[in-house]
Design a protein around this nucleic acid. Structure first.
Lengths: 198, 198
DNA sequence: GACAACATACCAACCGGTCGGTATTGACAG
DNA sequence: CTGTCAATACCGACCGGTTGGTATGTTGTC
């Protein structure tokens, strides 16, 4: 009934399934991971998984929401403040780097597979991601046209030099490593914004 | 007749198989693509594919060699010239952007799957890629320590802001688009090197 | 006894890969 | 030019195993 929790497992079964799937997708990729592997690592059975999730793809969608939902909300919040482009871009870089680092496993799991799929549900997610990119590029474009940023590189190049770092973050960033996410964000922002200074 | 050409297919069977596999891997990913799909698109049968390739993985390895072998050789050639860091880094950026753009489908097919696999053969390829990265980072590090480049960002950040662009190139670069690869390379180099100027 | 929370057993479809066979070839002989 | 022969190129049926997914059971709580 209502809020009955599982008595056996330490953590909730649903959470354990999601955590196992996240690790495996990050290690092997989505398509190369079988749901049998997922349930084995989570210590449940397939019946359990399909009790909570309608399909294998749902696991990916859930991860994507976790990673990207917050980023998109933060982007809107930052832009809504209406500050100058340098401050805004720096805030965006800081948020996406730190936010990605905070959910590095989910990011690794999701980053590869997104482009490949084209089912109805994932198309909505891709549209969100495109909106994020377009917001950043629009910001850069406006600032270049009004002379605040130098036009050394097109908005596409600038935005990809930012997103490229976050997309590759999972291959080298370590949460317990020497370089905290905030420092990575600052260095990236310094590099890009120095390049754009006129 | 006379010449050893297939009567039916226009191009050689081996090339058709590789081309089909490249497209499908780029579209769907390696693991999500079945060899049946490959042979269907290539207009041959599985027997034909396994006549030319020992395993599905061989297709990936071949693509990887095509994409990365040239890049690594060019890197060595550029570094061997012993010019100043700015010229060298600009030459590297130019080569990797233009080279990646010239084989954009293969790059897309390969870029995702590399990290996931760990068979004997692919480990060699990963080592090559690590050497490429280390060369670039070492170059940046040396230049920063000797004061030629400003230390606004760590070599890791700088190198990933370059590789990130090339890794994402296949999602937006179009060979017949308005922006030639040489221009992309120039803009990226300008952005990064302006950021590093002291 | 109704219902949520799982486990177990099971399925058709598909997977990468193999194998026996055949059609076509180039090289050599006469 | 013709006949023979071995090699190459390629086909398509087939293999054991695995896939994502389901139908049915069991168990504990209200």
């Amino acid at each position: 009934m209502g809020r009955s929790r599982a008595v056996a497992g330490a953590a909730g079964v649903r959470e354990r399934i999601l955590a196992a799937a996240t690790e495996l997708f990050a290690e092997q990729g989505y398509a190369a991971t079988s749901v049998q592997q997922v349930v084995d690592r989570a210590g449940v059975t397939k019946g359990g998984l399909y009790h909570y999730f309608g399909a294998k793809e749902d696991l990916l969608v859930e991860m994507y929401r976790a990673v990207f939902g917050e980023r998109l909300a933060a982007l809107d919040r930052i832009v809504a403040q209406g500050r100058d482009p340098e401050w805004t871009l720096r805030a965006i870089i800081d948020d996406i780097v730190v936010g990605t680092a905070a959910m590095i496993k989910e990011s690794a799991a999701v980053s590869h597979e997104l482009a490949a799929m084209d089912s109805d549900r994932t198309q909505r997610l891709q549209a969100d991601w495109r909106r994020y990119q377009e917001t950043v590029r629009g910001l850069i474009r406006d600032a270049q046209e009004s002379g605040v940023f130098a036009a050394v590189a097109s908005p596409e190049i600038v935005s990809w030099s930012i997103f490229g770092v976050t997309n590759s973050l999972h291959t080298w960033y370590r949460p317990d490593g020497p370089k905290p996410a905030e420092l990575i964000a600052k260095e990236l922002a310094d590099l890009v914004l120095t390049g754009l200074r006129r």
